[in-house]
């Protein structure tokens, strides 16, 4: 099936407040989707619902499997999550112990675990970090390890929950390059839940949420044209999007261009 996540008529209340009311959403297999929304828009709740943490009304299908108490465990095997504060999600003080944690829980054999570690080290280039202590790592390295840990059980969906808000811009860009590379090699479905609109540049699809409602959804470039809606929701457009839109008014470009080099070449042929 084309959609790896399919949410139908989701309704959910927390403490008597309605968070989602007949909410619908589909995420395409192999896409890199940015779920953008201000704090309180429901994005983290959505993640918890997908993981089967709460009970809800409606239907959630992950890879064609309907989420229920029975299927919770199988569904969680298909999902890997990276959270915002890596030091709060490490379960051990040596990197390799943290990465193998999910595999140990699934009772993989030692040989299977060894193979998987070699695969992930090669994929993310973290060979040198394996036996280091977690608190000796830099912020960027910690997130890399967190990504490795999330990927260890070979999930089909990798979800980032505000995972980059603590990083400086340079490190963030480096990590996004790693993620792009990962996506190219494995075609894993990636979802980035964030409140920072600059993160949109790294995905092919954008979903904008506001107070539990789906406001915008579509290809990145198309969604970024909706400057009035962004302004209404109090979200800033990424610089390149703003620039493109304004240059469009002056007739200097005819579409949204997100890459700086591409823009420079378009303007000065």
């Amino acid at each position: 099936m084309r959609d790896i996540i399919s949410i139908k008529n989701l309704s959910f209340k927390y403490d008597k407040t309605s968070i989602f009311d007949k909410f619908n959403l589909n995420i395409k297999r192999g896409s890199v989707t940015t779920i953008l929304g201000a704090n309180g828009s429901g994005k983290t709740t959505l993640l918890k619902l997908i993981l089967g943490i709460y009970e809800f009304d409606g239907e959630i299908y992950i890879d064609n499997i309907l989420l229920s108490k029975k299927t919770k465990k199988d569904i969680r095997k298909k999902i890997g999550v990276v959270f915002d504060k890596p030091e709060n999600s490490f379960v051990s003080d040596i990197v390799i112990d943290d990465i193998v944690f999910s595999l140990e829980n699934l009772n993989y054999s030692k040989e299977e675990i060894e193979d998987r570690i070699n695969e992930i080290s090669k994929l993310l280039n973290i060979d040198k970090l394996l036996y280091k202590r977690v608190n000796e790592l830099s912020g960027g390295e910690k997130q890399l390890v967190a990504i490795a840990s999330a990927l260890s059980h070979n999930p089909e969906i990798l979800i980032f929950d505000e995972a980059f808000s603590m990083l400086d811009l340079y490190t963030k860009e480096k990590i996004f390059e790693v993620i792009k590379d990962l996506h190219k090699k494995t075609n894993i479905t990636i979802i980035n839940i964030t409140h920072s609109s600059n993160d949109c540049l790294y995905g092919d699809t954008i979903i904008v949420l506001d107070e539990g409602r789906l406001i915008l959804k579509g290809d990145t470039k198309r969604v970024l044209e909706e400057e009035k809606m962004f302004e209404k929701l109090g979200l800033e457009l990424p610089f390149m999007a703003s620039l493109s839109i304004k240059l469009k008014y002056y007739g200097l470009v005819d579409e949204i261009i997100l890459d700086m080099d591409e823009m420079v070449n378009k303007l000065w042929k």
Binding site: S165, M166, G234, L235
Partner: peptide, 10 residues
């Protein structure tokens, strides 16, 4: 500004 969304940041 860490951890704040765009509106709160501004």
């Amino acid at each position: 500004t860490v951890g704040l969304d765009d509106a709160s940041k501004n």
